[in-house]
Write a protein that binds this DNA or RNA. Structure first.
Length: 453
RNA sequence: GGAGAGGUGGCUGAGCGGUCUAAAGCACCGCAUUGCUAAUGCGGCGUAGGUGUCAAAGCCUACCGGGGGUUCGAAUCCCCCCCUCUCCGCCA
């Protein structure tokens, strides 16, 4: 994912918490850790929250959990009584019947009151539960600051220019590769027209990425660009509210997707799979729409941070086993690296530190490309292993022959190529002294020329 | 967008206000039996939560597309929504 971690990856929590569990902003709508797991591993969870810089009242959670269980027992007993009573009514004579019906009516009220109480406790409980982030891979670097993420490896050499390199803004203007003014006129700031070779590059990058991921067994999808609210919620996005990153369509429950992670993850919402079907490897092409709320003033020049871009995304469902999802995570990162190595873009791989993981990720690697125009590294991809955190909310489970019941699968997502960021990296790294831009070898079959200008 | 039909357990499919604790069949598993393949009989066969236990068994509750309502009692009646199929309209 190419995204501002502060705003999207962190997925800020709601400010207000409406009481109804079905309310779109209700905390239960977020992915979360299993309640029983938290209860049984309270110390480990507490330690993890601390590492991630998240404050949670686990004592309160424990209290509420006990209250909840007691209430469930009580409510179930009341319902049992009610059922028993009802079954007597058909056989009763008229006199006792009236009395029984009356008693039943009272029982119904009791049950309703208990249920109401249970709901209240559940709301409070889930509010805490939803604030608890996923557990963390033992090898992930512990740290609070973005700078504490660890560069695990670097590939390629930042190009040395014997001239003053231009940034993508200058390059795009010079070669008429985009039209920001027209974009703003048509749709507002943050929207843009790609033009000329940039259009060909966009198509070429998609083709190139799609060919590679397909080679690695990812099933290609071109996905809807909109999704229902409950799909957004299932994948852990907050569709509405003040700080949302998501555009929603008025008077409907539809939203513009921020990534194909949402649509691909949604494909198996509430499904029970057979463990033998796993892993499932999906790739999706979609447009991505992001409001970038709260991101004003940060790198707003050009197309580094925009409200819409096109992306090829990888998504995987694996067996509920950390060894499995870990291996898939490595594979996804390897594919991302293969893509950027093929493009000849220098990059480094960051092992994201605990404080910057966001809620759902168990571990996350970002690729940052060298961007000469910024004279620094810039995020181009992001790959997360969400273990079962997202699947719990999505309701994607699997059955394995030897085990009773079902387990939540593990989900992973990663960027194959996000067009705007990749475009910046290509343009800036391949610029020449004469102002022209060389087209990377691997893209030429689709671009149809070897340089711009 | 309009009209009609329909969504029930892994699948087929009955039930249309009161042991539904969901019939039956298929599939699947176990046992028995028949010298093999196969057939037959018997039993089992879901998910989630709670309780219980060292663990389990067991017991309780919920779940018949989703949500809400009526009722002592709802798969069954009422309202809203979603989806599928057929036909019509519109359209790239």
């Amino acid at each position: 994912m190419v995204t501002d971690r502060q705003t999207l990856a962190a997925r800020p929590r709601r400010a207000l918490c409406p009481a109804h569990p079905r309310h779109p902003l209700h905390p239960s709508r977020k992915p979360m850790l299993d309640l029983q797991y938290i209860y049984d591993n309270i110390d480990a969870v507490a330690k993890n929250c601390e590492n991630r810089g998240v404050k949670v009242d686990l004592d309160q959670l424990k209290t509420l959990r006990d209250q909840r269980n007691a209430l469930i027992t009580e409510t179930d007993a009341a319902r049992h009584a009610s059922k028993e009573l009802s079954s007597k009514i058909p056989k009763a004579d008229a006199a006792t019947k009236a009395a029984l019906v009356d008693e039943g009516r009272k029982l119904r009220e009791t049950i309703a009151a208990l249920e109401e109480k249970q709901r209240e406790i559940e709301v409070a409980l889930k509010e805490i539960q939803a604030a608890i982030p996923n557990m963390t891979h033992p090898d992930a670097p512990v740290g609070r600051l973005e700078s504490e993420s660890v560069a695990v490896r670097t590939w390629g050499e930042p190009p040395k220019f014997d001239f003053e390199p231009l940034d993508h803004v200058a390059l795009c203007e010079k070669h008429q590769l985009y039209d920001l003014e027209a974009g703003a006129r048509v749709a507002g700031h943050g929207f843009y027209f790609l033009k000329n070779e940039a259009v060909l590059l966009e198509l070429a990058l998609i083709q190139y990425a799609v060919q590679i991921v397909r080679k690695h067994g990812f099933t290609l999808h071109s996905t809807p660009d909109i999704a229902r609210q409950d799909v957004l919620e299932g994948t852990g996005y907050q569709p509405r509210g003040n700080e949302t990153q998501i555009y929603s369509i008025k008077d409907t429950d539809l939203c513009l997707v921020a990534t194909a992670e949402i649509t691909l993850g949604g494909t198996l919402k509430d499904q029970v799979l057979n463990v033998e079907q796993l892993p499932l490897k999906y790739a999706g092409i979609s447009h991505c729409f992001r409001t970038e709320a709260g991101a004003h003033g940060k790198a707003t020049r050009g197309i580094y941070r925009v409200h819409q871009f096109t992306k090829v995304e990888l998504f995987a469902f694996t067996a509920p086993d950390v060894a499995e999802s870990d291996a898939m995570h490595q594979q996804i990162v390897a594919i991302e690296e293969e893509i950027f190595q093929g493009l000849g873009i220098p990059y480094r791989v960051l092992d994201i530190c605990t404080g910057d993981l966001g809620g759902p990720a168990y571990r996350k690697y970002d690729l940052e490309a060298w961007m000469p125009g910024r004279n620094e590294w810039g995020e181009i991809t992001s790959a997360s292993n969400c273990t079962d955190f997202q699947a719990r909310r999505l309701g994607t489970r699997c059955k394995s022959g030897d085990k009773k019941g079902t387990q939540f699968v593990h989900t992973l997502n990663g960027t194959a190529v996000a067009i705007t960021r990749a475009l910046i990296a290509v343009l800036e790294n391949y610029q020449q002294a004469d102002g022209s831009i060389v087209i990377p070898e691997v893209l030429r079959p689709w671009v149809g020329q070897d340089k711009i200008g």
